[in-house]
Every structure is written in structure tokens, then in C-alpha cells.
Simulated assay, not measured.
Amino acid sequence: MASDAIIGLYQRHALAFDAARGRQLFERGWLDRFAAWLPPGGAVLDLGCGMAEPIAAHLIGRGFRVTGVDTSPQLLGLARTRFPEQSWHLGDMRHLALAQRFEGILAWNSFFHLDQADQPEMFAVFARHAAPGAALLFTSGPEAGVAMGEFEGEPLFHASLSPGEYRALLARHGFEVVAHRAEDPECGGHTIWLARRAGADQPASTG
């Protein structure tokens, strides 16, 4: 499947991705909404963390403890060099089983590289690693389907379920939707989901 090629693509082009990835943090508004649900110094699980910039770097700068997971040894090597005090794990998010729960989980521009058949199973992974009241932030496509992009001359796979399917999966695994916006013009056209696990009170801060 085209989705299976994603791991190799990021391994082959890790340095090119690092150079191409903007650091201007257009995602800041959503990251700060996510952070508002976290306790000071809370633990965040970053799925598909890459080289930790700019997203993990922003959260680290705000005092959160980040555990990053990625399939690219090269990108993780950069993350370890830049932020050696954090935790970085080589692995596939689909099979993740860390003996830890987190106050925040994010899968920004990573979860949507999974095939449609794999995506529903990820919600059990989210739930397994979510502390009571945990915030969950991820990006998807605006509607069900497959979209092919391109990076370094190679096809780049993206897939999405329908918004209704995502809502049902979140509810089934104990999350409620806090905010959702399709193709947000203030965030580079990304489609974003912010949810929380049962047990949350009010946001810890307004960030």
C-alpha cells in the first residue's frame, strides 16, 4: 500500500524534511488551545514528532515534558541532539504500548499518513496513553478519502475518515470534541481536532 512507503520516505529524506519544515509556527493558536488543558509541567506524547521542531520545541519552551515517537532514526537523532533532556522513542505509533499515561497527546500532520484501515485502531492507542482529562490534538483531511502529495519527487500518502467517523471513534474511546475546524484558513488550511478524555475540569490556563 502507498501508506507503507511513508516510513521509508521520511528515512531517506530526513535532512531534506528538516530543512524544508518551516519554523514560523503557524500552528501556535491550536497548540496554545491544546496547552490550556494541560497542568503546568504536564507530560505530552508527540506521535510522529520528527526532529521536534517547531511543535515539540514550542511545548518544551512552555515547560511541558515531551515524549516523542517517530519511525525515522535520523529525525529522532536530531531531536535527541537538540533536546537531550526529553524522551525520544523509535517506533510505529500503531503498535505503541508505553507504560505511561500523558496529560496531552498530539499527532500533528502524522496520523493522517496512516491508511484508512489503520486509523480506527489508533483511537485505542490514544485512549491507552491518555490520563484522565487528557487533551488530544490531531489533524486529518476535511472528508473521507485519500489524497496524494509529493516530497522530494516521491508520492506522499494521506488518508482520512469522515468527520462523523472521527466523532464516533472519539466518543467510543472516552473523548469528547472540544473544537474542530475543517481547512482552517488561519492554520494553513489544516483540518484540526481538539478533544479531551473524560475526567477533565476546566482548562488549566488560557495560554
Rank of each mutant, 00 (worst) to 15 (best):
A2Y: 09
A5T: 07
I6H: 13
I7A: 15
Y10N: 02
L15H: 14
L15A: 15
L15N: 13
F17N: 08
A20I: 04
R21Q: 11
G22D: 12
L25F: 05
L25R: 06
F26K: 13
F26E: 13
W30A: 03
L31V: 03
A36I: 00
W37R: 01
L38S: 00
A43T: 00
V44I: 05
G50A: 08
P54N: 06
I60D: 02
G63N: 03
G63H: 06
R65Q: 02
G68V: 04
P73G: 04
G77R: 04
L78G: 02
T81W: 04
E85H: 10
L90I: 07
R101L: 00
I105S: 01
L106C: 07
L114D: 05
D115A: 14
Q116G: 11
E121C: 08
M122V: 08
A134R: 11
L137H: 14
G141E: 15
A147R: 15
G149Q: 13
H158Q: 10
S160R: 10
L161R: 12
L161M: 14
E165F: 11
A171P: 13
R172E: 15
R172W: 12
H173E: 14
E183D: 13
D184S: 07
T191K: 02
I192W: 05
R196V: 07
R197I: 03
D201C: 01
P203L: 01
A204Q: 05
